[in-house]
Measured scan of single mutants.
Amino acid sequence: MQGVVKVNSALNMRSGPGSNYGVIGTLRNNDKVEIIKEVDGAYEIRFNGKVGYASKSYITIVN
């Protein structure tokens, strides 16, 4: 499943599905991501070869 990031500035990509996990990357508006699955209000995603988590509130599914 594919998604597009929709933010005003940037969205943190984290090592786990919550803000208490470390930041492993930054997503920008209109970045395209692969959605692997939904976990606790976040999506597990793949972006630029990395797998991490981002809030589903800022990712629009575009299948």
Rank of each mutant, 00 (worst) to 15 (best):
E34I: 12
K32M: 13
G3F: 03
N12T: 13
T60G: 06
R46T: 07
G25C: 15
S57Y: 14
G52I: 02
T26K: 12
V7M: 04
Y21C: 15
G25F: 10
S55I: 09
S15I: 07
D31R: 02
G41C: 10
S19L: 13
T60I: 15
V5A: 03
T26N: 06
I59Q: 00
R14V: 11
N48T: 03
V62R: 05
I35H: 00
P17M: 06
I36K: 03
K6W: 05
I24D: 01
R46A: 08
Y53V: 02
K6A: 08
G3K: 01
N8G: 11
N29V: 05
T26A: 06
Y58R: 05
N48A: 10
I36G: 02
R46I: 13
N8Q: 13
R46N: 09
D40Q: 10
S9R: 13
Y21H: 10
G18S: 11
I35S: 00
Q2N: 09
E38K: 03
N48C: 11
S15H: 05
Y43N: 00
G25R: 04
V23Y: 05
G25I: 09
G41I: 05
V51A: 06
R14I: 08
E44A: 08
K32W: 12
G49A: 05
D40Y: 11
E34R: 06
G3V: 03
R14P: 03
A42Q: 15
E38R: 03
G41L: 07
V51K: 08
I36A: 02
S9K: 13
G22P: 15
N30G: 14
V33E: 00
L27H: 00
Q2I: 15
T26V: 14
K56L: 05
G52P: 01
S57C: 15
N8W: 10
F47E: 01
R28Y: 14
L27T: 01
V4Y: 08
R14N: 10
A54M: 04
V23W: 04
E34N: 06
K32Y: 12
V62Q: 09
L11M: 09
S15D: 13
E34F: 12
K37W: 05
G41A: 07
V7Q: 03
V23H: 04
I35E: 00
V51P: 03
G52Y: 03
S15F: 05
K32F: 12
V33D: 00
V4C: 12
A10V: 15
Y53R: 01
N48Y: 06
Y58L: 06
G41R: 05
K6I: 10
K56V: 10
I61K: 07
S55T: 10
G18P: 02
N63E: 12
N29L: 07
G3Y: 03
D31P: 01
V4T: 07
E38T: 05
K6G: 05
V4F: 07
M13C: 08
N30I: 02
G16I: 03
K37I: 05
S19D: 15
Y21E: 10
N12F: 15
N8F: 11
V23I: 13
S57A: 14
A10F: 15
I24Y: 01
G25N: 06
G18F: 04
K56Q: 07
E34Q: 10
D31K: 02
V7H: 10
V33S: 00
S9N: 12
Y21M: 08
Y21I: 03
N29C: 10
K50R: 10
V62C: 13
A10E: 14
M1D: 05
E38N: 03
G3C: 09
R28P: 01
K6N: 10
T26C: 13
V5F: 02
F47K: 03
A10Q: 13
Y53S: 01
R14A: 07
L27K: 00
V7L: 04
M1Y: 10
N30R: 07
G16M: 03
N20T: 11
A10R: 13
V5N: 01
V4H: 05
G52M: 02
N12Q: 14
I61H: 04
F47R: 03
Y58E: 07
M13P: 02
Y53L: 02
G49V: 02
A10G: 11
E44D: 00
K32P: 07
G22T: 15
R28E: 09
L27M: 05
N63C: 13
I45Y: 00
N20L: 08
A54W: 02
A54Y: 02
K37D: 10
Y43W: 07
M1Q: 11
Y58G: 12
Y53D: 01
G16V: 03
I59A: 00
A54C: 14
K50D: 06
P17F: 05
V62F: 09
Y43I: 02
K6S: 10
I35V: 10
V33W: 01
L27E: 01
I45A: 00
K56R: 07
V39H: 09
Y21K: 05
Q2Y: 14
N29E: 06
N12I: 15
N30W: 07
Y43H: 00
V23D: 03
D40M: 11
V62G: 06
Q2E: 11
F47S: 05
E44S: 03
M1N: 07
R46S: 10
V23N: 05
N12L: 15
N29D: 09
I24A: 03
P17Q: 04
G49Y: 04
D40I: 06
M1E: 06
I36R: 04
S57F: 14
A42M: 15
L11C: 15
S9D: 13
L27V: 04
S19Y: 12
V23L: 05
